[in-house]
Structures are given as C-alpha cells and as structure tokens.
C-alpha cells in the first residue's frame, strides 16, 4: 500500500436543483479495501458512477491509476472492473458464455478468454454449473458469476456495489472470502455496503458519505481508537423501567445510560468503572442481574456517532429498496 490509485477531488454532481454529491474528496491507496459507507440516497452510487464513467461530474476531478478519469475514461475502464448492486448478466446465456462475452469487451483473444472463463468458474466454485443459463442460477451463484465477470480482465481496481445484499449467509461468507482473496492477489477494492460489520471485517479504510458529502475518511484502526476512549458495559437484567434508568442517572451522574432492548441496558463511561456499585444498585432495587459484558466499540458505533444515523434505519431503508 502507499501509492494513491484513486483520487477524487472536489467531486460534485447536481441534478437540477438537487445536489447528489457535494465537494467529495478522498483517496484510495493501491492494494487496499476501501469501504464507502452511507445511508440510502447519500450519494454512494452516484459517486461510483462518476468514478467508473457512467455519470459525468458537474465539477471536480478524478485520477484513476494515473489517468484523468473524466477525459480518458475509456483508458481507465480497461483497468477497472465493476460489479453493480444487481446481477446484470445475460439471462439466456450460460455462465461460461457470459464470462467469455465479458472478456471480449476488453479485447481478449478467443483462446485467452475461454481459458480465463474456465479458470474463474473453477475458482468461484461454478465449474459444474457454468453450462446452465444464467437465469437458472441461484441468487448467490448469480452474484458470484457477476463478480467473476467484473474481474475477467484482471483489473487493478474492482468496484463492488453492495456485493452481499439479498443473498444467503453461506454465499455471503464465500463472497467475503473471494473479496479477501482478490485483495490478497493485489486487486484494490472499492466497496460499498450497508452492512457495517462487513465493512469492519473487510476494509482497511472507510469513507462515510451523508447527504452527498464525504464527512470522514480514515483507517478502521484510527476510527476505533477515537471510540475506544469510552467504556461500554452491557447489563442483562430481568427487566427495566424508565424510573430505574432515571434513578441510575441520578446515582451515577458521570454515566450515560441507554436502552438496548427490554432486558438490556448499556452504560457508557468516559473512564474505567468499578462494577460493585452497579451490582449493589440493582440489588437494592431488587432487580436480578443475569449478565454484565464489557463491549468493545464497533464500526457501527463509530458510524452512528459520526453520521448521527441509526443502523436500524440504514438496514430498513436498504431492505425496503430491495423489495
């Protein structure tokens, strides 16, 4: 890592009066997995479209692998692979024919493209099903074949838009593994996902985009470090009432209390806390405590703090969009 392979400088995209992307600037380094996170309608897809040549920026500049991504987009497209959020291969063509066709779009010779298609079908565990028409594939298989089509020409950079959305757990796991393998082989990955835990697991760095503005770009480690400064304790109780939470806030003024579910509450403290006073407090209130857990912050916590957007809303929006 170290060499900048994607550089977006002051990207803007307006649709009439509506600003889809506002002054977005970020860099992606060669060899990294970069996550681009944001709620539905934040401008993720518009940004990807501008980077890949499907949309023209209203203002700003793009450099991809040293080329001007606006003026020389066709040169850039030779070096990038794109996997859209929907599997968009040809339904009546077989998996093998789809891959061979996609390879031909990059000017690969017949023997070369057929060999590469066979290699990818084997690598993605689709060798047996490669002769079936694409429409007969399961969702997970379709997704895998679409990724294979995206890397048929061995691009330096792969853009993946929501790669695991709407597919079963096992296929999602396999796809995450494929992404890691590809990255291990040197492919730079630009990934958008609404599964924050997926981004946390896969990405080296992430960018948060909200309402068209990129509000933070950083390494996962740095983002977590900020969050690590707070201590989180999750208590599982028999039950809890608003009055109890109010009494807790009064008894422990330096602690923030939030409700996780009907049985769980979370205590947030800027400093390390002793457990005994809390246990005593619940004992006095005659509320049995079943479990106490020190919770390490997740990227989800960072996302919520930085963007102010609840994860539940993010997931609900995306599921709604899928339906």
């Amino acid at each position: 890592m170290g060499e900048t392979i994607i550089e977006a400088m002051g990207l803007c995209k307006w649709f009439g009066d509506f600003t889809a992307v506002r002054d977005a600037s970020f860099t992606v380094e060669a060899g990294e997995i970069f996550g681009f996170l944001g709620p539905n309608g934040a401008g993720k897809t518009t940004t990807i479209n501008m980077l890949t040549g499907l949309a023209k920026p209203t203002a700003g500049a793009i450099l991809i692998a040293g080329e001007d991504g606006i003026r020389h987009i066709k040169k850039v497209q030779q070096r990038i692979g794109i996997v859209p959020d929907e599997s968009n291969l040809y339904e009546d063509m077989s998996g093998f024919d789809n891959l061979v066709f996609c390879a031909s779009l990059y000017g690969m010779e017949k023997a070369q493209r057929e060999a590469r298609a066979r290699q990818l079908l084997a690598q993605f565990g689709l060798a047996e099903t490669g002769k079936r028409p694409f429409k007969a594939f399961s969702k997970g298989m379709k997704r895998k074949l679409t990724i294979a089509a995206g890397i048929i020409h061995a691009p330096r950079i792969l853009f993946l838009d929501e790669p695991t959305t709407g597919i079963d757990v096992e296929s999602a796991r396999q796809i995450r593994k494929l992404i890691q393998d590809l990255n291990g082989q040197g492919t730079t990955i630009f990934l958008t996902t609404h599964y924050i835990e997926e981004a946390e697991r896969l990405c080296h760095r992430v960018g948060f985009i909200v309402d068209g503005s990129v509000i933070r770009v950083d390494a996962i480690g740095s983002l977590m470090q900020d969050e690590d400064q707070a201590y989180r304790l999750d208590f599982t109780l028999e039950s809890h009432q608003p009055a109890l939470l109010e009494a807790m806030s009064q008894a422990f003024p330096n602690i923030q209390v939030s409700v996780l579910d009907p049985q769980r509450i979370r205590l947030l403290s800027p400093t390390r806390v002793e457990l005994a006073p809390f246990i005593q407090f619940f004992e006095d209130a005659q509320i049995p405590v079943y479990e106490v857990k020190l919770v390490h912050p997740s990227l989800e916590d960072v996302f919520v703090r930085i963007t102010g957007i609840e994860i539940a809303r993010l997931k609900k929006e995306k599921e709604g969009q899928r339906k």
């Binding site: 499907l54 030779q78 291969l89 339904e91 779009l105």
Partner: peptide
Amino acid sequence: KSRSFERLLLAPIS
C-alpha cells in the same frame, strides 16, 4: 431495463 446495457457502456469501447 435489465441493466445489462450498463455493462456495455462501462466497457472500454467507444
């Protein structure tokens, strides 16, 4: 409609 045309638009051909 099926978005397969996008694939062609994103290919490195004029």
